[in-house]
Computed example of a mutant assay.
Amino acid sequence: MRKSPAVEFKAAVVPTGDETIVTLSFGTGTRAAVKKFDLSKADFAPTDLTSELLYVLEAKSAVEAESRNLNRRLDAARKAAEQVAQTDALTGLQNRRAMTQYLGQLIASRVPFACMQMDLDFFKKINDTFGHAAGDYVLRAVAQVLNSETRAEDCVARIGGDEFVLIFVRVTDPVFLQRIAQRMIARLEEPVQFDQYVCCISASAGTSISIDYPNPDPDVMLSDADRALYASKKAGRGQHRFAKDHQSALSKR
Rank of each mutant, 00 (worst) to 15 (best):
1 M>T: 15
1 M>P: 05
1 M>C: 03
6 A>P: 06
10 K>Y: 03
17 G>R: 01
18 D>Y: 09
21 I>S: 09
26 F>H: 05
33 A>Y: 05
35 K>Q: 13
43 D>P: 06
45 A>F: 06
49 L>M: 12
58 E>Y: 06
58 E>L: 08
60 K>H: 13
68 R>N: 10
68 R>E: 13
69 N>Y: 01
72 R>V: 12
74 L>I: 03
77 A>K: 07
80 A>V: 04
81 A>L: 15
87 T>S: 13
87 T>H: 00
92 G>A: 14
94 Q>K: 15
96 R>E: 11
101 Q>T: 15
103 L>E: 10
104 G>M: 03
107 I>Q: 12
108 A>G: 07
117 Q>K: 01
119 D>H: 09
121 D>Y: 01
122 F>Q: 09
126 I>D: 00
134 A>C: 12
138 V>R: 15
140 R>C: 14
140 R>L: 11
146 L>D: 01
146 L>K: 09
150 T>L: 02
155 C>R: 08
158 R>A: 02
160 G>P: 08
162 D>A: 01
168 F>Y: 01
169 V>T: 02
174 P>S: 08
179 R>M: 01
180 I>T: 05
182 Q>L: 13
188 L>Q: 07
190 E>V: 15
196 Q>I: 11
199 C>G: 02
209 I>D: 01
212 D>P: 05
216 P>A: 14
216 P>G: 03
225 A>F: 00
225 A>Y: 00
228 A>Q: 13
234 K>C: 06
234 K>H: 10
239 Q>R: 12
240 H>S: 08
241 R>P: 03
250 L>H: 02
253 R>T: 13
